[in-house]
């Protein structure tokens, strides 16, 4: 019973993480972070010059 409970909790956390960081569009995520009062990284170039936050490039200010 406890094993099942812990397992479902882990699965729920993983699903929530995937939804937040991979499915939710960047703009919506940024808006939600602002509403929640979480620290935002200023990125003047985000709209005009790239930086998707979902890659390996290390260029995106959202990752830092």
């Amino acid at each position: 019973m406890i094993q099942a409970l812990v397992t479902y909790l882990i699965v729920a956390l993983a699903a929530a993480w995937i939804f937040w960081s991979m499915i939710l569009p960047v703009r919506l995520r940024a808006a939600l972070r602002r509403r929640l009062g979480l620290r935002m990284v200023v990125c003047g170039m985000l709209d005009r010059a790239g930086g998707c936050g979902g890659c390996d490039c290390q260029d995106c200010p959202l990752r830092r």
Binding site: V11, A14, A15, W17, I18, D56, Q58
Partner: peptide, 24 residues
């Protein structure tokens, strides 16, 4: 080390979360 860190971070985030879901 940068490439290794990127790879390990992906393994610990995207891949781990996906695997938990796939397992489920």
């Amino acid at each position: 080390l940068l490439r290794a860190r990127i790879f390990l971070r992906r393994a610990g985030t995207v891949i781990l979360a996906m695997m938990i879901l796939i397992w489920f």
